[in-house]
């Protein structure tokens, strides 16, 4: 947890430049939109089939990741880099292991009974599965938003936002009020709830609940936010609101979003990873590239078939 919460200014404009201390490499990702290819951290952490990586500073690097449920391999040999402070979308047909993959990044995968894994997930160069990393601590840096809004039903809006701080033991009582306002503003919910912070979290509409969950995730001051189909249970208007929010958070947080909705991926993400399912029913990474390229001129025939709606 960083020292100064005010540093993450809520009022910052959409394209706030990333804070230097978050950079994995000295090269700022802000140079990327121009297209200057940057080598992915250590030796071409290969995106299979991809040209020598054209990914900016990698916040997360996945190497030869396999994920299992008991004897069943759900995800096979995934290696990829996830760019710092960008939005990376993961798309693919149902059952191809997208969510399983996402949950391996903050070690939620291991909470499932009989789940296991091998390979590496490096966060700023540190393998999150190495023995010296504590999963509980890890999850403070890698937050998560779920498919169905899940505010804690026994807590007020206020208490929901600060739940992570209070229950995680990182709370300094003094400025909880400040945290609540800052995070609710960041989640675009402040104006709607500022007069009823003591109302129950579940009294809000579905879209508001989801934004409350995003505010809750922001409150513990993570660097990475994982979103597992965050809008699939919401109506189009609420969905749009979430997408706008993601674009506002871009640049300050590394966001990984799993989505069934290809339009959503193309609207919000900088990079897109396409997963598919092999003969053995294990999900694997078909290709990963800039979102524009995946949707216009992908390298793989399979990707093209999927994004053009020919299957899946």
């Amino acid at each position: 947890m960083r020292e100064d919460p005010v540093e993450m200014s809520v009022a910052a404009p959409v394209a706030a430049p990333p804070e230097p201390q978050r950079e994995a490499l000295p090269t700022a990702p802000s140079t990327v939109p121009g297209g200057a290819p940057l080598s992915l951290a250590p030796p071409a952490a290969g995106i299979p089939g991809a040209a020598p990586a054209t990914v900016p500073a990698a916040k997360i690097e996945i190497r030869d990741l396999n994920l299992y449920y008991g004897p069943f391999r759900a995800v096979r040999d995934v290696s990829m880099g996830i760019a710092a402070n960008q939005i990376t979308a993961i798309i693919g047909p149902s059952g191809c292991g997208k969510s399983t993959f996402l949950r391996s990044i903050n070690r939620m995968h291991e909470l499932t009974r009989h789940a296991s894994m091998d390979g590496q997930v490096l966060l700023d160069g540190v393998d999150v599965y190495s023995p010296e990393v504590d999963a509980v601590d890890l999850r403070r840096f890698v937050g998560m938003v779920f498919q169905r809004p899940n505010p804690f039903p026994t807590m007020s809006i206020y208490d929901n936002v600060v739940a992570g701080l209070r229950l995680g033991g990182g709370a300094r009582k003094a400025d909880l009020d400040e945290v609540v306002e800052r995070c609710l503003r960041a989640a675009g919910l402040w104006d709607e709830v500022k007069d009823k912070l003591r109302a129950g979290g579940t009294s809000l509409s579905g879209g508001q609940q989801q934004r409350l969950c995003i505010a809750r995730a922001l409150a513990v001051d993570p660097e990475v936010i994982l979103m597992d189909e965050p809008a699939s249970a919401l109506d189009p208007v609420a969905t749009l609101r979430i997408e706008e929010l993601m674009l506002e958070l871009r640049g300050r947080f590394t966001i990984v979003i799993v989505t069934h909705n290809m339009q959503q991926a193309s609207r919000v993400s900088d990079f897109t990873a396409f997963f598919s399912m092999g003969e053995d029913r294990a999900g694997y990474l078909v290709e990963m590239d800039r979102t524009a390229r995946i949707f216009t001129n992908p390298r793989e025939k399979l990707t093209e078939d999927y994004v053009s709606g020919r299957f899946g």
Binding site: M144, L167, G168, A217
Partner: peptide, 23 residues
């Protein structure tokens, strides 16, 4: 109690015992 609530709490970095008692 839905699994999503437990996971929502654990994903915030709340320890398991605290999740059980407080959520």
């Amino acid at each position: 109690v839905p699994r999503e609530l437990r996971e929502g709490s654990l994903a915030l970095g709340v320890p398991s015992w605290r999740t059980t008692l407080s959520v």
